[in-house]
Nucleic acid binder design. Structure first.
Length: 433
RNA sequence: GUGCUAGUAGCUCAAUUGGCAGAGUACCAGAUUGUGGUUCUGGGCGUUGGGGGUUCAAGUCCCCUCUGGCACCCCA
């Protein structure tokens, strides 16, 4: 093997491109149905655009280099900072709310696992400039719609939703020290993922003890919103986020998507910048890593130098989604795109095939023919992927006629050339613009 | 960044305690120059991922490295 692609990259052969296009097209169609517009930015940005959002630690998890002008550059590991930059640059001239989507190719310098590579695609949908919970509900409805568009059912996946705001209000109402709330988040995030001893270590490391431990344990034990409600019943006035998340779930019900969306107190997400609703999409068995994740980030645009602007968004990667679709046998079968195959009766004279192919192409019919004068049988073998076959050359060709064959039914007939065009053109499916 | 595991034909895999590298599939060509998915025959299938070491002899044992898979960390 002379050369290999770099670690964690993929080659997309035509059959792979057909799959990735299927995924992209499904994404784009849903984005369009929900009124999102597409945007795109550069694949590399100034390094500090990413450290601004995520801190210096992020540098060891991305590809960065100095360019010939001695500038610090990074291949983008996410597109949200680019989005924030673009939003800030247009400022108040954008009509709110902004509903934009993108399918960026992203790069992360990480050790690979199932569903995680160093180069991948990620759909991003964001709603910017709407503070109300209706934006969160609309966004999550779009996620569910998208998953349904792949023919995934509620028995295949669930969207697990929590609220950072709800968690911090509950913790405060129960008397948990405010400065330790971030540590509490990371412990909640570990629910069901680590051993009890490891949990004790985390408490010790973060200096959480006594009644504070009990507060977290009580929260962790909540399997539903009603449990949370009961836990803070005495201090309900200090937890307005409860009403908000109730409103969220009533909207989800109105969308008709209740079976797909559930409350899960263990969904916190690692990033510090989430301020409200957070959610993750998992396969039902939770055997794969999260298929998508997102939430509300009301402080980010301001952090990038813009006016205070509420925002909510999510990302969905192509790698894990592909794993799930493959597992559920929902990947469309490969189909060679050519529509008509032209066969030369006389393998030593390719001119009839050339002239007929040119005429078909002028008419917008996709076609090809053997480029190397193969015998009849070989040509037929190549033609078996085509929808229709046209036979040229020989006696019919001399009379201005062409024999055409439907490869599905096997039906054949000899027709005038002009008639052949219109018959062959029927049923063609040109690629969408 | 840490640990575990694997790598043989394009693909799926076999090869006795170390003893001449194989099968299927796919590909190309021909029995077939006017009819496809089926047969028959022939043909590349290869520095056994790469490098070094032990040995009369290494796909096999040892070391290094590359790539894949899994767990931890992280998950934007």
């Amino acid at each position: 093997m002379a050369f290999q692609g770099p670690k964690g990259t993929r080659d997309f052969y035509p059959e792979d491109m057909q799959v990735i296009s299927f995924i992209f097209n499904t994404w784009k169609r849903t984005a369009w149905l929900f009124g999102f517009e597409e945007y795109e930015g550069p694949m590399f940005e100034h390094l500090d655009l990413f450290t601004k959002k995520s801190g210096e630690e992020i540098v060891k998890q991305l590809y960065n280099f100095k360019d010939k002008g001695d500038r610090d550059i990074a291949l983008r590991p996410e597109i949200t900072p680019t989005l924030a930059r673009m939003i800030v640059a247009r400022g108040s001239s954008l009509k709110k709310p902004v509903k934009w989507f993108s399918i960026p190719r992203l790069f992360r310098y990480e050790r690979m696992q199932k569903g995680r590579l160093r180069e991948f695609h990620q759909l991003n949908l964001d709603i910017i400039g709407e503070a109300g919970i209706s934006a969160d509900a609309e966004l999550i409805a779009a996620v569910v719609f998208m998953m349904k568009s792949f023919c995934l059912a509620s028995t295949d996946f669930k969207i697990r939703v929590n609220s950072r705001k709800l968690m911090s209000e509950c913790l405060s109402a129960l008397g948990f020290p405010a400065e330790k709330i971030p540590a509490a988040y990371s412990i909640l995030d570990k629910k069901g993922k680590i051993e009890p001893e490891a949990l004790q270590e985390m408490y010790a490391k973060d200096g959480i003890a006594g009644s504070d431990v009990q507060i977290i344990e009580n929260l962790l034990a909540c399997a539903s919103l009603d449990h949370v409600r009961a836990l803070v019943a005495a201090k309900a006035d200090q937890v307005p986020a409860l009403a908000e998340i109730d409103e969220f779930f009533s909207k989800i019900s109105a969308y008709g998507l209740s079976e797909f969306v559930l409350f899960d107190i263990a969904v916190i997400r690692g990033l510090a910048y989430y301020t409200g609703i957070v959610f993750e999409v998992f396969d039902e068995q939770k055997s794969l890593r999260a298929i998508a994740g997102g939430g509300r980030y009301d402080a980010l645009i301001e952090q990038f130098g813009g006016e205070p602007t509420p925002a909510v968004g999510f990302g969905m990667g192509d790698v894990v989604l592909y794993e799930l679709l493959k597992e559920k046998n929902l990947i469309p079968q490969y189909r060679k795109p050519v529509d008509v195959y032209i066969i030369n009766f006389n393998k030593d004279d390719s001119l009839p095939a050339i002239s007929f192919a040119s005429l078909l192409r002028e008419k917008g019919v996709s076609c090809e023919f053997s480029l190397k004068g193969q015998n009849f049988k070989k040509q037929m073998e190549h033609a078996q992927h085509a929808r229709m076959v046209a036979f040229v050359g020989g006696d019919e060709w001399k009379e201005g006629k062409v024999k055409i064959k439907d490869m599905g039914s096997g039906e054949e007939k000899v027709v005038e050339k002009d008639e052949a065009y219109s018959i062959l053109a029927m049923g063609t499916h040109p690629p969408a613009p």
